[in-house]
Nucleic acid binder design. Structure first.
Lengths: 122, 122
DNA sequence: AATAGTCTTCTACATTTGTAGAAATACTTT
DNA sequence: AAAGTATTTCTACAAATGTAGAAGACTATT
């Protein structure tokens, strides 16, 4: 099961806030804010899809994510790689590195991450 | 305008074939193949969205992509990065490099790509 | 010319998504 | 207690998506 575009947006807010009440979620939307019922609907659907849970605090619901952003995102990317890059993460990585024109600093950072990874392999 | 999931799948076939007749497209689908009309519908919608064009060859249409895979994909990723990584390609890159556990060879390849990029910066 | 094969366009219909009003419920403040 | 505020659930509805039949047009064959 996957989230739709708008659900994803809401999920992002939730990840950022870690946990939130209706009100908090509404707040983070820029004007023109969607109707509160719209958010409610989305939250409901997301609960049905098992992406969101909540705790009762008094009688308010404090919502929180049931999947981590990392996890969600990793799956997402995996799908992309499968569809577009022959299921080869490396192919994807080189495409990405070549197309996304990173700054020198960014490249250096990346390089050192890769070097770390290489060291761990040993 | 974006392609839907199934349209994307079809587009992938088209990118692979470079250009193709109905028949060719149907062929690449694994059993159980979708109805030919389903493909037709998709192609039509993709034409409406300006992702596909065709040349008449005799009275057959030879379809071809109007956007490159690279291009399409780059946009796609850009969206992801915007949504999930604060619009920072570098942040994305490091997330990816850390989570996708690449083999030593793959890491080495990546490293040399990055070094090339760095050299070009000078 | 009659038949069969290939393809496109039209039409259709169920499902999912984006959006939100109406009504019910509970809490807060006057 | 009356009113206002916040929130949830129900219901609704338009648009997009997944899927495909019916009918028409053209080509190759018999």
């Amino acid at each position: 099961m996957k989230l739709s575009k708008t659900e994803e947006e809401l999920m992002n807010h939730l990840w950022e806030l870690k946990s939130a009440f209706m009100k908090d979620l509404l707040e983070v939307y820029p004007d023109p804010k969607p109707a509160a019922t719209t958010i409610s609907t989305l939250l409901k659907r997301m609960q049905d899809k098992d992406f969101v849970g909540y705790n009762l605090v008094g009688n308010m619901r404090q919502y929180f994510p049931l999947v981590s952003k990392d996890n969600y995102f990793a799956k997402h990317i995996k799908g992309l790689i499968k569809n577009f890059f022959n299921d080869s993460p490396a192919q994807f990585a080189s495409f990405f590195t070549q197309k996304s024109d990173l700054s020198e600093d960014e490249l250096l950072t990346l390089k050192s991450i890769i070097e770390d990874q290489l060291n761990q392999k040993k």
